[in-house]
Amino acid sequence: MSRYRGPRLKVCRRLGNLPGLTRKKSKKQSLPGEHGEQSRKPSEYSLRLEEKQKLRFNYGLNERQLLRYIKKAKKVQGSTGLIILQMLEMRLDNTIFRFGMAPTIPAARQLVNHNHIQVNGNNVSICSYQCKPGDIIQIKKKNSSQILVKKYLDFPGLLSIPSHLEMDKDTLVGKVNGIVEREWVAIELNELLIVEYYSRK
Score class of each variant (00 low, 15 high):
196 E>K: 15
87 M>R: 09
177 N>V: 12
28 K>Q: 10
132 K>L: 07
23 R>V: 11
22 T>F: 07
152 Y>S: 03
14 R>V: 01
144 S>R: 15
7 P>F: 12
47 L>K: 15
96 I>S: 12
18 L>R: 10
36 G>Y: 09
24 K>G: 12
50 E>C: 08
64 R>I: 04
136 I>P: 09
149 V>K: 14
27 K>S: 11
94 N>M: 00
50 E>F: 13
18 L>D: 15
28 K>N: 13
20 G>Y: 01
166 E>M: 02
45 Y>E: 12
46 S>P: 13
137 I>V: 10
156 P>N: 09
24 K>R: 12
72 K>C: 01
142 K>D: 06
125 S>F: 13
13 R>E: 12
31 L>W: 05
15 L>R: 13
35 H>R: 15
104 T>M: 07
157 G>Q: 04
134 G>Q: 08
159 L>A: 08
86 Q>V: 10
26 S>F: 12
95 T>F: 00
79 S>Q: 04
4 Y>A: 02
41 K>P: 05
187 I>A: 03
68 R>P: 00
56 R>W: 02
192 L>F: 00
50 E>A: 15
142 K>H: 15
18 L>K: 04
83 I>M: 05
107 A>S: 15
33 G>P: 15
57 F>C: 06
160 S>G: 00
40 R>P: 08
185 V>G: 06
40 R>D: 07
182 R>L: 03
98 R>I: 06
4 Y>V: 02
80 T>Q: 05
189 L>Y: 07
169 K>V: 09
109 R>M: 09
22 T>S: 14
34 E>F: 07
90 M>L: 06
53 Q>S: 11
127 C>V: 11
39 S>K: 14
144 S>M: 13
180 V>R: 02
82 L>F: 00
7 P>T: 11
67 L>S: 03
113 N>D: 13
9 L>F: 04
139 I>D: 10
196 E>G: 05
175 K>E: 13
5 R>D: 09
137 I>G: 11
95 T>Q: 02
46 S>L: 05
129 Y>K: 02
132 K>N: 04
104 T>K: 02
94 N>H: 13
54 K>S: 12
20 G>E: 01
59 Y>V: 01
53 Q>D: 14
12 C>D: 09
89 E>M: 06
183 E>P: 07
110 Q>F: 06
73 A>N: 02
27 K>M: 06
17 N>W: 12
100 G>N: 07
144 S>V: 15
25 K>L: 13
79 S>W: 00
28 K>Y: 06
190 N>E: 14
73 A>Q: 04
